[in-house]
Amino acid sequence: MELSRKFLLSVIGLCLLPTVGSAGDDSLFGGLLDGIYCEHRSVAELGPIETDRHDFTQSPRTVGAGVVQFEGGYSYFHKSQDGETENSHTTPELVTRIGITEDVELRLRMNYVWQFRDGEEDLTDLDSAEDIRYGLKLALTEQDGWTPESAVRVIASAPTGGSDFTTSHDEFGFDFVYEWRNEDEWSLAGSTGFGTDGLGEFSLVGLAGQALEGAEGDDGGQDRFTAFSQSVACGVPLAERTELYLEYFGIYSRGLRDDFTLNFFNAGVDYLLTPDWVIDFRIGAGLNEEADDLFVGVGGAYRFR
Rank of each mutant, 00 (worst) to 15 (best):
W180R: 00
W180N: 01
V236M: 00
D219Q: 11
L204Y: 13
W180I: 00
G193S: 08
G206H: 12
D218N: 14
L207P: 05
V177G: 01
Y248P: 05
S191N: 14
S191D: 15
A227M: 09
D219I: 10
T192E: 02
Y248E: 04
Q222G: 08
A227L: 08
A239M: 07
G209N: 14
T242D: 00
R224V: 09
T192H: 03
C234I: 14
F249H: 14
G193L: 06
S187L: 10
L244R: 02
A208Q: 11
Y245V: 03
A208P: 12
S231Y: 03
Y245D: 02
Y245G: 01
G198F: 07
L244F: 11
V205R: 05
A211I: 05
Y245T: 02
E213H: 12
L188E: 04
Y248A: 06
D218F: 14
F228V: 06
G200V: 01
E185I: 03
G200E: 06
S191H: 04
T226I: 15
Y178C: 01
R254E: 14
Q210G: 10
F228H: 09
G250I: 03
C234K: 01
Y252I: 10
G217W: 13
A208R: 10
S253I: 01
I251F: 03
T196G: 11
E179Y: 02
D197E: 13
I251Q: 10
A239L: 09
G220R: 13
G198W: 06
D218S: 15
T242W: 01
Q222P: 10
V232M: 12
T196W: 11
G206P: 07
S253E: 10
A208F: 12
A211N: 14
G200I: 01
E183D: 11
Q210Y: 06
D197T: 06
D197G: 03
Y248L: 07
S203R: 07
G209A: 15
G250Y: 01
G206D: 15
G209D: 15
S191E: 12
T226K: 08
R241F: 00
G190M: 07
L212W: 12
G217T: 12
C234V: 13
G198L: 06
E240G: 00
D223R: 06
V177R: 00
G235D: 04
S203G: 11
G206S: 14
E216Y: 09
L244W: 12
L207W: 07
A211E: 15
E216G: 05
R241I: 00
T226G: 08
P237Q: 04
F194N: 04
T242R: 01
A233W: 02
N182D: 15
